[in-house]
Simulated assay, not measured.
Amino acid sequence: MDTHIEQLLEYILKGSEHEVHKHLPAAKQERDEIKQLVGTQESSQTEAYGKLKVWLEQLEQGKEIFRGKATQTLQVFRDHLKPLLKNIEEQRHYTDTTRASDHDTDNRRSFKASNPIERNREVSEAIQKAEQEKNIIERSKRAGQALRHNNPDIADLSDTNRPTKIAERFSELYDNEWTEAFEKLSKNKITDKKAIGLLLHIVQSTNTFCKEQAETMITSMISSFNQNKETDQEKQMKVKAEEAIPRLKWDFAEEVISMCERLKIPKPSNDGVLIRFAKQATELCWWMNVQDPPVYMCPTDDTRKTDFDPNLYRAYTKTGKHLDFYVWPALKLHENGGVLYKGVAQMTN
Rank of each mutant, 00 (worst) to 15 (best):
F277L: 04
L56F: 06
A278I: 06
V344P: 04
L157C: 01
E168L: 14
R262T: 09
R121A: 10
E215S: 09
R67E: 09
H21S: 14
D2P: 15
A27S: 08
I65P: 08
H21V: 15
W55Y: 09
D251M: 13
D175W: 05
P310A: 00
P163N: 00
K187W: 00
N150G: 01
F77V: 14
E47V: 15
L147V: 14
G62K: 00
D232W: 02
S114K: 03
V295A: 04
Y313A: 13
T160I: 15
G338K: 13
L248E: 09
F66T: 14
T164H: 03
T348V: 12
F209E: 02
K240Y: 02
N151A: 08
Q213L: 03
I196M: 01
H149S: 11
I196K: 00
A315E: 09
T208V: 10
A27L: 02
L248G: 07
T208W: 06
V273E: 10
P268L: 02
Q7S: 12
G144D: 08
A70G: 10
P83E: 06
N311E: 12
I117E: 05
K22L: 15
E118M: 08
K22E: 14
K332E: 11
L59K: 04
P163M: 01
Q72R: 12
D2I: 11
E118C: 04
W286D: 02
S269E: 13
D153C: 06
Q145M: 15
S101Y: 06
K305Q: 11
P299D: 10
E261S: 10
I88M: 06
K194Q: 11
A281V: 04
Q227L: 12
Q280A: 07
T303Q: 13
T219W: 05
E138R: 09
D102E: 07
G50H: 07
Q61V: 11
K184Q: 09
V203S: 01
D106W: 02
I166L: 08
P25H: 07
D301L: 12
M1A: 12
L323H: 04
E283M: 10
H4F: 09
R139T: 09
I196A: 01
Y296T: 07
I117F: 00
M237I: 14
E212A: 13
R108V: 14
Y49W: 08
L198G: 00
N151P: 05
G197I: 02
K86Y: 03
L333R: 13
